[in-house]
Design a protein around this nucleic acid. Structure first.
Lengths: 197, 197
DNA sequence: CAGACTCTCTACCAAGTGGTAGACGACGGC
DNA sequence: GCCGTCGTCTACCACTTGGTAGAGAGTCTG
């Protein structure tokens, strides 16, 4: 049978385990067991745990960058619609795969070199968003505000919900996908209201 | 000399170490060394690592609850000023002690029982804020919006910045206290703009 | 002083960690 | 049939982890 290659399956399980439980808390052995293989096979594909973490970050970043930059290039001219699309794009992968949110929460603790590489890949996207916001504000199609703040807020909101999905419960929502979607939708209309000219 | 009691010093170091590096990543031995004592003395004061974590959460919650509920009871009548005070209060402890932000990031991974207890202590505060927002909105002194969303956004923003202070750099700000303060101030005016009637 | 209590210590343990060395079978090209 | 490469395995290592047992020093109370 054409089973998926071991390397891919390891990456797959690693995303979930690292995301839900934390990199430090998950051992190579546990990942191996989840894949149905021995720890030493994991070390065959990834020479060290750190290499595995790096590979996980890379794959995740690839996906995120593709999805989000596609949304940025979306053709609709109305800036509010466009912002909406980006927010949906940012939440999209997280809604489909909650472990990704948990992974974000690991960033602050990982080897700074790894995080730097990841950030240098994401930064151009953020800059593009900021420039776009500035542009539309200059043309009066969005209310004047610090575009970097808007970016920081969106960034922080997503990672914040990532950090503590319990926050959803605390404010009286379910912490499952429905709660996440609801937050996303409310956030969209909130930003709309704040940025509408 | 009236040195601070060992128990307190352990709690103190634990807040910083757990916050900056993560509960799982910090060993009892490391905490003990930071205090200048042997691991077994730590285990004398806290019968297990989990008990230490619980105690840390309790002390932190105590401080937060005091500071925030004081801000909620602030006397100023203008809702915007009042909201401002609460935001400042939420950011206050974090600005003074960045490790607290890191601790928030641990919540999602800790024993659910611990987190539940913490949440049940914070929830009344959140509920009070929500009721207050609803009330002022009903009286037309704040723009109509879902008060739970406002609470969730504020909550998420703080924990988001906690999760990844690097986000500050990504959007072009310093990640130090100045950056944090700036984010706080911008957030205040942003919420003001969004909620002003 | 005697005895209890408080606090920190040394010594130890079983379990688990990331990682190395190398054997073993399967497979393809020659 | 033979050889090398690939992928997984068993066996092992040095080290760290959270936790136990109990000794012993210091102090307070009688």
């Amino acid at each position: 049978m054409p089973e998926r290659p071991t390397r891919e399956r390891i990456l797959d399980e690693a995303v979930d385990l690292f995301g839900f439980r934390g990199v430090e808390a998950v051992s190579l052995d546990e990942i191996a067991r989840a894949v149905g293989v021995r720890k030493q096979s994991v070390l065959y594909w990834f020479p060290s745990k750190e290499a595995l973490v790096a590979a996980v970050l890379d794959t995740v970043a690839d996906e995120l960058i593709v999805v989000i930059s596609a949304a940025i290039r979306a053709s609709d001219d109305d800036p509010l619609v466009r912002i909406d699309a980006v927010i949906r794009a940012v939440f999209g992968p997280a809604v489909r795969r909650p472990a990704l949110l948990g992974l974000v929460r690991e960033l602050g603790r990982l080897d700074p070199e790894l995080v730097d590489r990841l950030r240098s890949r994401v930064q151009p996207l953020v800059e593009a968003c900021v420039r776009y916001l500035e542009d539309e504000m200059g043309r009066g199609r969005l209310r004047r505000a610090d575009p970097r703040l808007v970016a920081a807020l969106a960034y922080a909101t997503v990672t914040g919900i990532a950090t503590e999905p319990e926050a959803l419960e605390t404010v009286g929502w379910q912490r499952d996908l429905a709660g996440l979607r609801r937050l996303r939708d409310e956030l969209r209309s909130f930003i709309r209201a704040a940025l509408a000219p």
